[in-house]
């Protein structure tokens, strides 16, 4: 079997055999093959190669292949072109991380609030301890706060009994002068060698 010297025609033989040439090329190759023994023999060899190789190839299970493919992202309306499975995994990871962060934040808030309420109760308890050795007439001790009472950070006038308040008012009335709550006037002084000079 010899080779045809027309390299262009020999190059086109496989595509001619597959029937994928355009109309013009198909006509040219057909005319050449009809007149060329070498190309006719080579075309027959190409056919035999195709047949022999195809015989040993297992059939592909299309359904199994399709079943193994990732699902397209039809629900989101976005084409899979912009939503690969790898990006799905990354997005889900972020979602899990955000959910975990939210749970952590809420949990911390609850713990902080309960701790604060407990502290308030402790403060209330300590105020009660302070008021326990009060004078005998102080019979109305401050009741310990419960968490439902809210947060209290210390005692005040509201913790005093009526008698305590009356005694306090009496002491205030007995004072001759009350301390001024106004700020003291500030007189600027310029320093000099002879001492301070008041303006």
């Amino acid at each position: 079997m010899t080779d045809c010297p027309n390299g262009e025609m020999r190059d086109l033989l496989p595509e001619y055999a597959h029937g994928v040439l355009g109309a013009e090329d198909t006509a040219r190759v057909a005319a050449h093959v009809a007149a060329c023994d070498d190309c006719r023999a080579e075309l027959a060899l190409i056919g035999r190669v195709r047949e022999s190789v195809t015989l040993g190839v297992p059939r592909t299970n299309v359904a199994a292949i399709v079943g193994a493919l990732p699902a397209p992202r039809a629900a989101s309306g976005k084409p899979a072109l912009y939503a690969s499975p790898r990006r799905d995994v990354a997005w889900k990871t972020w979602q899990y991380a955000a959910a975990a962060g939210l749970v952590l934040a809420v949990g911390s808030g609850v713990v902080w609030q309960r701790t604060s309420v407990g502290t308030g109760a402790r403060f209330a308890d300590s105020s009660q301890v302070r008021t326990s050795p009060a004078p005998a007439e102080t019979t109305h001790a401050t009741a310990p706060l419960t968490p439902e009472d809210g947060i209290t950070f210390g005692g005040g006038l509201s913790d005093l009994s009526l008698n305590d308040l009356q005694a306090l008012l009496g002491q205030m009335d007995s004072l001759k002068t009350l301390p001024s709550t106004d700020p003291q006037s500030v007189t600027p002084v310029i320093a000099s060698n002879e001492g301070g000079k008041t303006l």
Binding site: V66, A71, P72, R73, A74, P79, A80, L81
Partner: peptide, 9 residues
């Protein structure tokens, strides 16, 4: 397929 048509696959 990207629009959700599995028959295209």
């Amino acid at each position: 397929w990207q629009r959700g048509d599995e028959r295209a696959a």
